[in-house]
């Protein structure tokens, strides 16, 4: 089991092409922890914005009458991938992991697999 800081460090270190990561509470839109990003990429802005993405998707699913849960969301930009992975399990309820990848360096399938493992290992 890893805590927030360890999990984020691991995401950035072990996932090829990762440039930033955050653990976000989507009931409030605030980040519990961030790593990377830098001056040009404010992860707190991303946390708030992607909270809206998740809320919109959840509302849509509710309107469609879908009972399933969101596992992850992939957003593909011309030069980046953004991966959103919702935490399962009681301690992670209402939280998601957010990962920014450089599209040129990243292996999407591997990144998704590794993020899943980090998520399962994370104890908040």
């Amino acid at each position: 089991m890893a805590n927030t800081e360890t999990a984020l460090k691991e995401a950035l270190a072990s996932i090829e092409g990762a440039t930033g990561a955050a653990l976000v509470d989507y009931t409030s839109g605030m980040a519990l922890g961030t790593i990377g990003g830098g001056k040009s990429f404010d992860l707190n802005v991303a946390a708030a914005g992607n909270t809206d993405v998740i809320r919109a998707k959840m509302r849509t699913m509710e309107h469609l009458g879908l009972k399933a849960e969101i596992e992850d969301i992939l957003i593909t930009l011309t030069d980046q991938y953004h991966l959103i992975r919702l935490l399962s399990g009681r301690s992670g309820n209402g939280l998601f992991l957010y990962l920014v990848l450089d599209a040129k360096r990243a292996n999407l399938a591997m990144a998704r697999h590794q993020l899943k493992r980090i998520e399962q290992d994370l104890e908040v």
């Binding site: 409030s28 605030m30 707190n44 946390a47 708030a48 809206d52």
Partner: peptide, 8 residues
């Protein structure tokens, strides 16, 4: 409300 966005 999204408090993160509220702050921003």
């Amino acid at each position: 409300v999204n408090v993160g966005r509220l702050h921003l």
